[in-house]
Design a protein around this nucleic acid. Structure first.
Lengths: 133, 133
DNA sequence: CTAGAATGATTCTAATTGCAATGATTCGAG
DNA sequence: CTCGAATCATTGCAATTAGAATCATTCTAG
């Protein structure tokens, strides 16, 4: 029989651990943890709402971090083709280059490293079933 | 092959989902999410640092939520036997009663419900291996 | 067609959180 | 024994975050 409270603590603990890992790596590039998370998710053009969804935060926060990244010249807001309300976030060449460096840093000493590829697969499968979006 | 970035997003997403679930239930008892988390972890006397560890937050934060719970009469700070630096957090009868009500609320419609007990077991096992450094 | 609901982004405000510094107590090397 | 390092809780401050309100645009029922 599984203890749900313990399980919640473990999920939260691992999330915090992943965030701490991201925080240290992003800091070496002059970014906050949130900025690093945003950069990590921007594998292609995203709308602000999509970014908020991937970062699991409020849209107002996504606006905030996008502002900072835009000020630093790492992304641009472009009019969304086909929806004039929305804006597309697109990385500048500097942003894309920085993203590559960040991804390289993140792949080192990942908190998920103790798990084998197979275990990561089953973990991914279980989490995907639990997360309702 | 597993995508580590996707996995990180899933862990974070589930953590946020669990927190949102906790937030709504705690709110019906007049508590914030953090206060609810603290109450949930206080199955027995805990030191502030232990509580912070279980909540995966900074000790200063644990002090903050303990202050609130103490003001509301749900817990007491007692001198720790054997260590005069530390303080033991102990639930009052009202706190213990409130905790039972919270646990009852939390067991309903848990975000982990989509997973079978067996799946929750393997999930717990995997997370435990990843989170222990 | 059109009025009202819904969606997307933004702004403002308040609350939560992390971080560095401080005081008190305990531990440990020499 | 003793002095410096480490631990525990707390405080103050800065930064992040969530939540409600607002404006513009899009969708939809009738």
């Amino acid at each position: 029989m599984s203890d749900e409270r313990l399980l919640c603590g473990l999920v939260n603990g691992l999330a915090k651990q992943i965030e701490a890992h991201l925080r240290t790596r992003a800091a070496t590039l002059g970014l906050t943890a949130s900025q690093g998370a945003a950069l990590r998710e921007l594998s292609g053009p995203l709308t602000l709402r999509e970014l908020a969804g991937r970062m699991a935060c409020e849209p107002s926060n996504a606006t905030f971090v996008a502002d900072r990244l835009e000020e630093q010249g790492y992304l641009e807001r472009r009019p969304h083709p086909g929806n004039r309300r929305a804006k597309q976030l697109v990385l500048t060449p500097e942003g894309a280059e920085l993203r590559e460096r960040l991804l390289a840093l993140l792949s080192q000493d990942s908190p998920l490293a103790p798990l084998s590829p197979g275990e990561q697969d089953t973990l991914q499968h279980l989490l995907a079933r639990a997360v309702t979006r």
